[in-house]
Design a protein around this nucleic acid. Structure first.
Lengths: 196, 196
DNA sequence: CGCATTTTGGACAGATCAATACAAATAGGA
DNA sequence: TCCTATTTGTATTGATCTGTCCAAAATGCG
């Protein structure tokens, strides 16, 4: 039998994800990834093949961690649609609070990837779009329920409103990266919820 | 007297701006900048000192071109506040239409810079924040007028609403980069305006 | 105890990066 | 026409980049 790995693959992936998340794809060197994961170059290339493959796995892991959690909030039928949306915004802003560096957010890896890579990296674009579809579907469902129940009063199409909410979330992420404080981010979220 | 430059500095700056805008700071090499501007390395370094200095000048030029124009729309007192906001969104979305590559927007250089650089480049962050302050001031002023006139009915603070509108604009930019089509972007903008 | 198989560390390869050195070219003024 | 000052093109520097090579180390099995 072969020599066993001396590290936990998932743990290394988390460290890499966090590095890409904080610094972006281009600004993260393979040496940065070695330092962050604690692995040697051979272990990284043996396990993840290339920087680009590692990035894709990190991106998938990010969406699994974040979006699964957020969709669970949106599908929690013990709460009203309006309450679920509030919980979603609260969770997003709580995440922004946790991930601040020098009084700035580090944003959201899918938003960062959309901005940095989607235009010239079709594989990254496809991963982000798949995540986007899942998020929009869940948002549309909860918004449609809220409209049917009369909790939301907008006359707009639920799919359009889902796009709107999703855009506001991206805007909150960018505002956090620009240095906006938490009360400001909460006010943006509250204003958006009022639009429904 | 010295030998005169063979090129127009402003024209070269525009080409560099466009390259940074489309591809980001890290992914733009100095050779890319030579190709885009048509200049040799010596001319670029002689005129702009370094890649980073050139980027800062390109960013300033971008904000001057874009934000000056947008603030003029917001301060056009021949139109109602609601109409001015609609004109602003229309102009932003028209810009998105003009700048598409492979069915995707290239976004907004200030949003892209916030996402890619603000966390680790204080000079870029300061330039973006100065632009942000100007945009927010103009937004707040027009929203305050609309509230006073009764055209807007939100009970919220104008500064908060300005932050909200600004976040939606960033969200529209990101959505455009993610491949959203124009009717979708318009629907997001309309929903945001309804919130006022 | 070898044997087969994989991991690991460190050196290295080849490309590319930002930036510089330098001489030839180009202009006006003396 | 020579002098000075600047621009321009090319070659090059030294650093850094991603990715590979290879031998030593580590495991279970026969």
């Amino acid at each position: 039998m072969p020599r066993p790995k001396e590290f936990d693959e998932e743990q290394a992936l988390d460290a890499a994800m966090r590095t890409f998340w904080a610094n972006g794809y281009e600004a993260t060197s393979t040496e940065d990834l070695c330092r962050a994961t604690g692995l040697g170059r051979s272990s990284i290339y043996n396990t993840f093949s290339s920087k680009h493959e590692l990035f894709k796995r990190a991106l998938v892991r990010y969406t699994e961690l974040m979006t699964d959690n957020q969709i669970a909030l949106l599908e929690d039928e013990t709460r009203s649609p309006g309450r679920r949306l509030r919980d979603l915004f609260d969770a997003i802003i709580a995440g922004e609070v946790e991930n601040r560096r020098d009084d700035r957010g580090i944003g959201c890896l899918t938003v960062n990837t959309t901005v940095e890579l989607a235009g010239r990296d079709p594989e990254a674009a496809e991963l982000v779009e798949h995540d986007q579809r899942r998020r929009l579907d869940a948002l549309r469902a909860v918004i449609a329920t809220g409209l049917r129940d009369g909790e939301f009063r907008s006359g707009r199409d639920p799919a359009e409103l889902a796009r709107f909410v999703n855009a506001v979330i991206a805007g909150i992420r960018v505002a956090g990266q620009g240095g906006a404080d938490i009360p400001t981010l909460n006010a943006i979220a509250d204003t958006a919820r009022q639009a429904l």
